[in-house]
Nucleic acid binder design. Structure first.
Lengths: 219, 219
DNA sequence: TAAAATTTTTAGAGTTGCCTAAAAATGATT
DNA sequence: AATCATTTTTAGGCAACTCTAAAAATTTTA
């Protein structure tokens, strides 16, 4: 039996190993879960005994196959619930994370299966993150960002790399939401800020920080 | 902040005070929550300090207004989720209790409001139990049971008093589901078993134990 | 109404998951 | 390579919730 706390640790270790930068060090996990390093050490020992993580003292942790399967299952539930909240209950994309953090821990495989079917097997959540299927297969995450779009080229916004509410709210305000078509008008060498045309209409200037956190797909 | 365990105690005390028989004694609560009497005593003290239950040693507990409001809120969530599971996800009425026991603890009033709206403000859950509204107003529970239906009279099944899976599965098997029209053909004095006509069609014999656990509404 | 049976409470302890403070190991710097 | 800074672990403890065993109160029964 996996506790709620354990599930959160597995999820944190998973996501820290997805992004580059050093993997799931004790401190990184502590920061991600807003807890103390000593608590993380305790839990890593426990998860290691349970054969859910690979852990040797003073080394970053990684997931075993069993741990990976559980983490992916939790992520599947999180993203399906997010999709439900936005598509069916009409929440905005910056309102769903916290609620999905709770819903992802509901234990019932029948529930997840039926939810998946009710939602007609969505492939991506409201932030563009891929939803793992029943067998844990997961589409590769998008890897091209808007900051890599050459001048004059067009693309669609397909995901966000940063999930903070303030970022999502900014995107809403400037209409840079998922599915939007963008064209790169110009980019300034000085600070890598860029002028983009949104949906064939108005031009806006966005900072490098914005454009490097938006996943795109070339048209 | 109310913990999950506290919510379960409040719900148990609420339901024990709804039915007759002695109210929420320490042992009754312990049995309901499948725990030990000593644990209940501890928790009653704690809830009493938090002014959520009225408790004096060696006496059955009851809910304060605040405790009542919380209990009703949890029940509202439970029944809304049950409705969702049956109506939208196509679960059967004997499959939803355990899942709703988990979902009822999700904390987000926005979620409950939007779920309620998505479901179009249902008044009764899949077992015929009334769903409290946002303000905690709750329809009176049905009070007439099939065992009180006079011979020759007709009624609709509107709820179940007993919620065990085996009972619900029995009802499915003999088609005594919610909304079914029944006519009382005969009742035997010996054991109070009865012959009922189901939906104007076949007659079946049901025991007293069945008929006293089915709520009806006269036609 | 006194003894017996039952219910309830108290006392002490275990588990999980977290904390602080201090010690130990690692890594960076000169 | 020795010192300094950072990271990680250890040690000891706390809060929530549970348990068992024993004591105390209440209720039942004779």
């Amino acid at each position: 039996m996996i506790s709620l706390a354990e599930e959160n640790y597995l999820k944190a270790i998973y996501s820290l190993n997805q992004i580059q930068q050093g993997g799931a060090s004790t401190n990184a996990v502590a920061e991600k879960l807003d807890t103390k390093a000593s608590s993380v050490t305790d839990m890593l020992k426990k998860l290691s005994e349970k054969k859910l993580v690979n852990y040797t003292k003073y080394q970053p942790a990684s997931l075993t196959n069993r741990g990976m399967a559980i983490a992916i299952d939790v992520i599947r539930k999180h993203r399906l619930w997010e999709f439900f909240l936005v598509e069916k209950l009409k929440f905005k994309w910056d309102e769903v994370h916290e609620i999905a953090e709770q819903l992802e821990h509901i234990r019932s495989s029948a529930l997840v299966d039926r939810l998946d079917s009710f939602l007609e097997y969505p492939k991506f959540d409201p932030h563009g993150d891929p939803i793992p299927d029943k067998e844990g297969r997961i589409n590769k995450i998008h890897d091209t960002v808007l900051s890599a779009l050459p001048i004059g080229e067009e693309a669609h916004i397909v995901g966000v790399k940063e999930h903070s509410n303030s970022f999502l709210q900014y995107l809403d305000a400037v209409k840079l939401v998922l599915g939007t078509r963008v064209k790169l008008i110009n980019r300034f060498e000085f600070d890598q800020s860029a002028i983009v045309q949104i949906a064939g209409k108005e031009n806006i200037t966005i900072s490098f920080d914005i454009s490097k956190n938006l996943y795109i797909k070339f048209i």
